[in-house]
C-alpha cells in the first residue's frame, strides 16, 4: 500500500486538481481514493494494468467526492478566475521564463482552468484523461466504462467545446 501511495498519490492529486478541486479538496480526494484502494485492492484481478484499475477507482471516488462537496456547498463556485489563481512557480528546466512570461503563463493557465471547469463532467473527464494523463482511448474506455467509439466522440466534442469556451472567456476579458 505504501509503495502504491508513493507511486500514484501525486498522479491522483493532479487528476483531482484538473477535475476542478482546490488543493485542500484534492488532498482529501487523494485520501478517499487510497482508502478505497486499500479496501478494494483484493478485488484487483490483474486483467488490466494496475494504473488503469487505480484510475478507475480514482475517477469514481473523485466523482462521489465532488458530489459530496457540491451538496455541502450547494453550488460549487467557479474556481480559477484569473485574480484567484496562484502563480505558476515551475518553469521549463534550463529555460527560466522572465517574470513577464511567468505572469502571462499564469494568466493563461487560469483561463484554461476556468474553461475546463465549465465543461460538463463527461467532457472534462475524457479530456483530462487523454490530454493531461496521456491515456489511450482503450484505457479511458476501461476507466470510464465506455465503448472506445464513445470515448473518441466525446474527446472530439470536448475539444470543440473547450476551444469555444476559451474564446468566449478571452473575449470577456
Amino acid at each position: 500500500m505504501d509503495a502504491l501511495f508513493v507511486e500514484f498519490s501525486s498522479r491522483v492529486y493532479g487528476l483531482a486538481r484538473r477535475f476542478g478541486f482546490t488543493p485542500e479538496e484534492a488532498e482529501d480526494g487523494v485520501q478517499e481514493v487510497f482508502l478505497k484502494v486499500q479496501r478494494k485492492i483484493a478485488t484487483f484481478r490483474g486483467d488490466a494494468a494496475l494504473s488503469t484499475w487505480l484510475y478507475r477507482v480514482a475517477v469514481n471516488v473523485l466523482r462521489d467526492h465532488r458530489r459530496r462537496l457540491q451538496r455541502q456547498k450547494r453550488v460549487l463556485p467557479l474556481r480559477g478566475a484569473p485574480d484567484q489563481e496562484e502563480p505558476v512557480e515551475a518553469g521549463i528546466e534550463g529555460d527560466e521564463p522572465s517574470p513577464g512570461e511567468r505572469m502571462e503563463r499564469a494568466e493563461r493557465a487560469a483561463l484554461v482552468r476556468a474553461a475546463l471547469e465549465r465543461l460538463p463532467d463527461r467532457f472534462r473527464e475524457v479530456l483530462v484523461l487523454r490530454e493531461l494523463e496521456g491515456l489511450s482511448y482503450r484505457d479511458i474506455g476501461r476507466i470510464l466504462d465506455l465503448p472506445q467509439g464513445t470515448v473518441e466522440s466525446r474527446i472530439h466534442r470536448a475539444r470543440l467545446r473547450l476551444a469555444a469556451d476559451l474564446k468566449r472567456l478571452e473575449g470577456s476579458l
Binding site: 498519490s9 501525486s10 492529486y13 493532479g14 486538481r17 484538473r18 488532498e27 487523494v30 496562484e86 505558476v88 512557480e89 515551475a90 518553469g91 503563463r105 493563461r108 493557465a109 484554461v112 482552468r113 475546463l116 479530456l127 490530454e131 493531461l132 475539444r159 473547450l162 476551444a163 476559451l166
Partner: peptide, 17 residues
C-alpha cells in the same frame, strides 16, 4: 487543437503534489 493541447499543458506544473 494543438494550441489547446499547449494550453492544457500549462496546468501540469501547478498540479503537482
Amino acid at each position: 487543437w494543438q494550441e489547446l493541447r499547449d494550453d492544457l499543458a500549462l496546468l501540469q506544473p501547478e498540479d503537482a503534489l
